[in-house]
Design a protein around this nucleic acid. Sequence first.
RNA 1: GCCCCCAUCGUCUAGAGGCCUAGGACAACAGCCUUUCAAGCUGUAGACAGCGAUUCGAAUUCGCUUGGGGGCACCA
Length: 481
Amino acid sequence: MRFAPSPTGFLHVGSVHTALFTWLFARHNKGSFILRIEDTDVERKVEGSIEAIMDGLRWLGLEWDEGPEVGGNYGPYFQSQRLELYHEAARRLVSQGDAYYCYCSPDRLDEMRAEQVRRKQPPGYDRLCRDLDQTERDRMEASGITPVVRFKTPLEGKTGFKDIIWGDIEFDNSTLDDLVLLKSDGYPTYHLANVVDDHAMEISHVIRAEEWVSSTPRHILLYGALGYQPPYFAHMPLLVGPDRAKLGKRHGAVSVTEYRELGYMPEAMLNFLALLGWSLDDKTEIFSREDLINNFSLERVSRTAATFNHEKLKWMNGLYIRNLDLDDLTRRALPFLDTGLPLEVKRPLSIEYVRQIMPLIQERMREMAEVTDLAHFFFSEELSYESELLIGKGMNQESALQALKVSRNRLGEMTGFDTESLEVLLRPLADELGLKTGQLFGVLRVTVTGRAAAPPLFQTMAVLGRDLCLRRIEAAIEKLG
RNA sequence: GCCCCCAUCGUCUAGAGGCCUAGGACAACAGCCUUUCAAGCUGUAGACAGCGAUUCGAAUUCGCUUGGGGGCACCA
């Protein structure tokens, strides 16, 4: 099996979806997973995208058995390094009479198509050059035109194939036009290159997105003309946005890099993507990589396009985060804190301190990048919040001020400063002050964290430490007074 | 316009003639827990696109309609 992206930018989640299913199929069946770079479009090639693709796949753990940087017996794995193979195939097809040189200019083709659309005809090459004789060809050659090679599609008959996911699909050859195989710049089109390579690399199963269904008959025809046995085809359901159109940039984050930077875990990403167009049964939805490999089958892939639901991904990522052990969580969160926290915060961050904070915010994170916002008050000296926030329901400035002053004194006299002693001290204190526990705790929470919603108070204070807590109480008293 | 395909809660899906008064999950809503926010637990609401046909019986089979998508490049 192979995953064959073209290096035209970032690694798209749709591509990863296909890569994942291909990889799962390969792993499940003990086949090999090949990465092949389809760099046959010089114009659209984007610098650095090959690295982005490889980085992305590796981050997700979709390791390839053959391909760039790993090698293999069927290389090279860049189509731009395999041009001779395509030329040879094209020459053979021409000499067999299954392909021909076409001298039509792009301008003529554009006009032709515009005219066809105007007349509401299906657009397609009009086969002007299909039956050129030798003298006409010589004349064209002499005028300096570099021809393209086009496939001589049979005019009649039907071409069908059995798709593992879709079943039997059949096309009338009359609806297919003479596609270009070799471009005038000497590069092959996808159609030629993919057929030649899939055969040369002994690909048994071609797994790709649904958008390729309509060009599959052309490929079948090509395999036939070349005398090759076609592989099995499995077309995957498309990933779409909320408007049901093919997932694209306008739908928000579509590159794996973006998700990585937001703090999505590869495990969650794969789990989520696997459930788009595939399911095991009516209840299982949390799968480890191994579970996926063990249970995957193309027969259970659905045919309907799936909406990429960010909300569910977020939920699932949160679930994975909650399942992390302390060390793992700390290790993964550290880089996000490092880049996300304000410059004033001293670096390097104390791993021990971060370790103490993590349990307090673990169940509140859904994207790892949220760690910065959730934990910033553990690091910043100054807190900024509106003083009204200190005055809770049923309280006024005076009672808040008094609560703070008394708390300051008591806290200062404490011997220990752990969660339990804080609770033992503070809980009765509310009563003494004539406040409900919620009121007292509320004032202190805002004082100590700068916000109304935060992790449990006593634990938070214990981590912050007595000094910082007292300084913040002073600051709050000042704010109110 | 032509070709190909798809159609179960808002979303992801289970369902391959009776197990379906259609199951699960996200999201929503309500309650419980609770010092806030989360997390967790419990519950509520929510779908077989429509119409015909086959059948004792249809979400499941067939046809039509409607809706949606994909493709129709010297891009992949």
